[in-house]
Design a protein around this nucleic acid. Structure first.
Lengths: 402, 402
DNA sequence: ACTATTTCGTCATGGCGGTTTACAAATTAG
DNA sequence: CTAATTTGTAAACCGCCATGACGAAATAGT
C-alpha cells in the first residue's frame, strides 16, 4: 500500500488529496509545512501572509502540526521591527525521517534525513555487487538500514518511509526492478525482499539524482533534463517540478537514442546508439584503457594529465551526447540541461564539444548546460528527500503518530 | 487577461483553483460537468455516487449549473429498475459555445462547438495565405468569426472564448505568433489584431490536433506522442492528459531531430535533420514532383497508382521518421504514437517502414503506432474544444452569465 | 517616563460547503 | 394494495476558514 511519492507538487498545492473539507485542510497543512521548510524560521503571521490565509487559520494549522511533532516553536523572534515579535516556527528536527538507500554496482549506502533536510545518520559499504543474487545484497542492505535506523531513533527520529535507488528500470508500482543489467537482476520484487513496517519505494537511480538536483540544487529550474551516466546513459525529464515517468515507468532512456543510424549494431537491436559512443565501455575502449574498478576516476585523472587519447575519446563522447541532446532539447524545450552522475566529474572535457554540437544544431538561444554539484551523492540524497517531501506534501497522513 | 486553457486536468480535478472553500465548490462544479459530459444523461443520484458526494450536495451543485445554463433537465428517466426514476441531466446545448479558428497555409476555417461537443456552425474559405500580411488575413478571419457567431447566437449559444490554431510557434502567453515560416509571420500579436470581447487563445496547430485526438479520439490514451506534418514536422507531447508546453512554449519540435548527423546542412544550422528526409519539400523532391498546391493529395494519388518513385520516397521518409521517433519514444515512454495531419493521409505508405525501423531500434514490446481518424479537421476541432474544456474545467467562471 | 502605534497571537462569531437524517414522491415486486 | 426501493429535497449539524475584537509585546514620539 505504498503511497505514490514525489509526484508533481508545485510546492504545497498537492492535488492527490480528495476534494473535501478534510482534503482542503490537509492541503493547507502541506502549504504551511512547505512555506516554513523553504523560508526558514517564520512566525505564524508571516506564514499567513505568504499562503494567503488568516493568522487565525494558520494558528490552528500550526497547533496541529506542533502536536504532531512536525513543527517546533523556537521561541520569540529577535525584535528588530516595530510591533510585538512573532514566535519563530521551524520544521522539527525530532519528528519523522526519510530513509534513503542506494544499491550501486560497487557500493551500498543508506542514510537518514530529517525534515529539515539534514543528514542525521549514514552508512556506506564498498564491495562489488555485480552478479550477486538479490537476496544477499538486500540482506546486507537491510542490516545497514537497521543500523542507520537505530542511530536515528537515538536522536528522536522515527522512519516515515524508505526509498531505494537502483541502477535499473523500475516498474510503475515502484517496487519491482524490471531490469538492472549492471547487477544482472530481472523482475526482482524488492518490496517482498525488504520487509519494513513503513512505506517502501523503489526508483531509478538517475531519477532520484534528478530529484536531488531539483530539490537541493542551487537555482535549478522546474523544467530541466538531468543526464547521468553510470554504465548506461539515462536522462530524467523534470516537467513542472515533477518527474516524467512514462507509461511503463521507463521514460528517460537516452542511451539508445540513435546517433549514427548506420553505425555498429547495439545489443538493444538498434544501430549507432548513443551508448556506443558515450557509454563508459565505449569511451574506455576509445581511450585505449581496460575496463576495471573506478574507471571514471581513471579517465578524469588521465584527462587532467593531458593524455591526448583520453581527451579525444571524451571530446567524441561529448559530441555524441550533443547530438542526442539536440533531439531531446528540441522535443522538450527544457529550461536547462544538467549533467550529473559520472558525467559531472568528466564535464571539463565533455562540455566544450557537447555545447558546441548542441548550439550548432538548435536554432535560437542555446539551452544552457550546467554541471551538478551534488556528484555521486545525488541518488542517495534524492531517495531520502523523496520521503521527506512526501511528508511535507501530506503532513496529515503522519499526524496520528508522535 | 486570458486564462490558461487546457492545462492538465484529470477529468475534473482541476488544480488551478485556489485552495479555499470557493475553490472546492468550483472544483466540484467542474466534477459534475465532466461526469455528465462524459457519461451521457445521468440523474443527480448517479452523479453523486460517481464523484463521491452526497445527493444533497450534488443537488445544490446541479441547481447552480442549471441556473447558469450549463446543464439541462431532460425530464424523468425511463423507469427500468425498481425505485423512483431519476431526472436525467444533460449538458446544455444552448449555453456557452467554444469558437475555434484555424489559419492554414491555404485556407481559413472557423467553427462553433457547443458544450455537448457538437459543431453548430462553421465556415471555410480557401485561398493561399502564404506571404500575406497578418492584417488582411485576420480581418478576413474576423469576418468569418462574426458570421459563425451570428449563426450560433441564432441557436441560443453565446461565445465563451475563441481559440486560434496557427501553423507556427506560439509564445507562452498564448497570444503572439513568434514564428510561422509558412505564412512568413514573425512576432505577430494576434491578441491585438483580433478584438473580441471574450477570452482569446492562440496555439500551435499541431498541439490543437493532439488535443483533438486526446479528447475526441477513440480509445486514445492519456500519454501519447502526436506527430503531424504540414510543412514542418511537429510532435505534440501529451503527458497525463495534458499538453507539454516547454519553457518557451516550443516543445514538440521533431523536424530538427538529427537523423543523419553528417547529412546535408539544414537552414536551422544543424545537419541531416528529419525535415530533410521526411519534410514535404524533401519528399516531393525525392519523388520527382514539383512543389505546388495540394501536394499531399498528389502524393497519395500517385502512391495509390503505384508510382514507384513516390512509394520509395515515402518509404524513405517513413524510415527517417522511425529513426527520429525511436529517440522520442525512448525518452518519453508514451503509450502510443499517433500520426496526424498530412501524415495521416500518407500513412499506408509510411507506416511499414516507420514501424519496422521503430521496432528494430527499441527494446521490449514495441510502441504501437496508430493513425488519427480526425484527419485535417483535428486542429480546428481541438481549438474549439479547448474552449469547451475550459468551461467544463471551471464552470464557475462562466456562471455569472446566462 | 508615558502614551500612541504597530504587530502578533488568540478568541468568539459568522458564513459557506458538504454531511447526516428525515421525509415525500415515484416506481417495481409480491 | 402493500412492502420495498430509489430519487430528490429540506432541516439540522459539523468542519473549516474569515471577520472583528482583544490583550500582549515591541517601537516611536513627546
Amino acid at each position: 500500500m505504498t503511497a505514490p511519492l514525489h509526484e508533481a507538487h508545485p510546492a504545497g498545492a498537492g492535488p492527490a488529496l480528495p476534494n473535501t473539507q478534510q482534503g482542503m485542510r490537509r492541503r493547507n497543512l502541506a502549504r504551511v509545512m512547505h512555506t516554513v521548510s523553504a523560508e526558514g524560521p517564520l512566525s505564524r503571521a508571516a506564514v499567513a501572509s505568504r499562503i494567503g490565509l488568516t493568522r487565525a487559520a494558520v494558528s490552528t494549522l500550526v497547533d496541529e502540526l506542533i502536536r504532531s511533532g512536525l513543527l517546533e516553536e523556537l521561541g520569540p523572534e529577535r525584535p528588530g521591527r516595530v510591533g510585538r515579535p512573532g514566535s519563530a516556527l521551524a520544521v522539527s528536527g525530532h519528528g519523522p525521517a526519510g530513509i534513503g538507500a542506494e544499491i550501486g554496482v560497487d557500493h551500498l549506502a543508506v542514510c537518514a534525513v530529517d525534515l529539515r533536510g539534514e543528514v542525521r545518520s549514514r552508512a556506506v559499504r564498498y564491495g562489488a555487487n555485480r552478479g550477486r543474487a538479490p537476496e544477499p545484497v538486500i540482506e546486507e542492505l537491510t542490516e545497514m538500514v537497521r543500523r542507520v535506523l537505530a542511530e536515528a531513533e537515538g536522536e528522536g527520529l522515527w522512519p516515515a518511509g524508505l526509498a531505494v535507488a537502483v541502477p535499473g528500470l523500475v516498474a510503475r508500482d515502484a517496487r519491482t526492478v524490471v531490469r538492472a543489467p549492471n547487477l544482472d537482476w530481472r523482475d526482482t520484487d524488492l518490496g517482498a525482499l525488504l520487509p519494513v513496517d513503513f512505506p517502501l519505494t523503489v526508483g531509478n537511480e538517475a531519477n532520484f539524482g534528478a530529484l536531488a538536483e531539483l530539490w537541493l540544487g542551487d537555482g535549478t529550474p522546474r523544467d530541466f533534463l538531468h543526464v547521468s551516466a553510470e554504465i548506461g546513459i539515462g536522462a530524467a525529464v523534470v516537467v513542472d517540478g515533477g518527474l516524467l515517468h512514462g507509461t511503463r515507468g521507463f521514460a528517460g532512456e537516452l542511451g539508445h537514442m540513435p546517433v549514427r543510424p548506420d553505425g555498429p549494431e547495439c545489443p538493444c537491436g538498434g544501430h549507432g546508439c548513443l551508448e556506443q559512443y558515450a557509454g563508459e565501455e565505449a569511451v574506455l575502449r576509445a581511450a585505449g584503457l581496460e575496463p576495471g574498478a573506478d574507471r571514471v576516476g581513471l579517465l578524469a585523472e588521465r584527462a587532467a594529465e593531458g593524455d591526448e587519447d583520453v581527451r579525444r575519446a571524451l571530446r567524441d563522447a561529448g559530441t555524441a551526447l550533443g547530438i542526442a541532446l539536440t533531439g531531446a532539447v528540441n522535443l522538450l524545450d527544457p529550461e536547462s540541461v544538467v549533467l550529473g552522475g559520472a558525467l559531472a566529474g568528466l564535464a571539463p572535457w565533455l562540455l566544450p564539444s557537447l555545447e558546441a554540437e548542441l548550439d550548432r544544431r538548435t536554432a535560437g538561444p542555446a539551452c544552457p548546460v550546467s554541471v551538478s554539484r551534488l556528484g555521486p551523492e545525488g541518488p542517495l540524497l534524492g531517495a531520502a528527500h523523496s520521503v521527506v517531501r512526501a511528508v511535507l506534501d501530506d503532513p496529515g497522513v503522519v499526524a496520528e503518530r508522535g
